[in-house]
Simulated assay, not measured.
Amino acid sequence: MIDARGYICPMPVVMVQKEVRANAPGSLEVMVDNQCAVENVTRFGSSQGYQVEVKPEGPDFRLTLKK
């Protein structure tokens, strides 16, 4: 799981890019705390062939990326 809470864009996307390039995971969970990060990580995940599910968790968001 990548905890990108507290980071502003583009850092959450950069963190996800590094994980995807290094390990090509079949699924990945990402925690973010702002709508901009939700949109950008979702866009990146989709461009890499992942289906992205977004679940609000209090003030944060859990994104699940699955191939």
Rank of each mutant, 00 (worst) to 15 (best):
N40V: 01
F61W: 08
E39Y: 06
S46G: 10
A37S: 12
Y50P: 00
T42S: 11
K55D: 15
Y7K: 05
S27W: 15
T42Y: 02
L65V: 07
Q48K: 15
M15G: 01
V32H: 01
P25R: 10
I8R: 14
P59N: 12
K55P: 09
P25S: 15
E39C: 08
A24F: 15
C36K: 15
D33H: 00
E39G: 09
E29P: 14
V32M: 07
P25Q: 12
P12L: 05
P10I: 10
V32E: 06
I2R: 03
Q35Y: 09
V52K: 02
L65D: 07
G26L: 15
R5S: 09
V30I: 14
D33M: 00
C9R: 08
V30G: 01
V13F: 02
V30A: 08
R5Q: 07
G49H: 13
V38R: 04
V54N: 08
K66A: 11
M31A: 15
N40K: 04
E29L: 14
G58Q: 13
N23V: 13
S27Y: 11
R62D: 01
R43W: 05
Y7P: 02
G58I: 09
S27K: 12
E29R: 14
R62F: 12
I8L: 14
P56Q: 14
V32W: 03
D3I: 06
V38C: 03
D60I: 01
E29G: 12
L63C: 03
R5L: 02
V54K: 12
I8A: 06
S27R: 13
G6V: 02
Q48T: 02
K55C: 14
P10V: 09
E57L: 14
L65Q: 06
D33V: 06
K55H: 09
V54H: 14
G45R: 02
V54P: 06
I2C: 01
V20P: 04
N34K: 13
E39V: 07
Y7T: 03
D3M: 09
T64F: 05
S27Q: 12
E19K: 00
M15F: 12
L63R: 11
N34T: 05
C36E: 13
K67F: 03
C36V: 08
L65G: 01
A4V: 02
I2A: 04
E19A: 02
M1G: 09
E39W: 03
V54D: 08
G26C: 10
V30W: 12
Q17G: 06
V38P: 00
M15D: 10
V54R: 06
N23Y: 12
F61Q: 00
E19S: 08
G45Y: 04
M31I: 07
Q51P: 00
D3L: 05
E19W: 04
R43F: 11
P59F: 10
M31K: 13
V52E: 06
D3H: 07
L28S: 07
E57T: 09
V16P: 03
N23I: 14
V13L: 05
E29S: 15
V52G: 06
D3F: 01
M1E: 14
M15L: 10
N23F: 13
Y7N: 08
S47Q: 07
L63G: 10
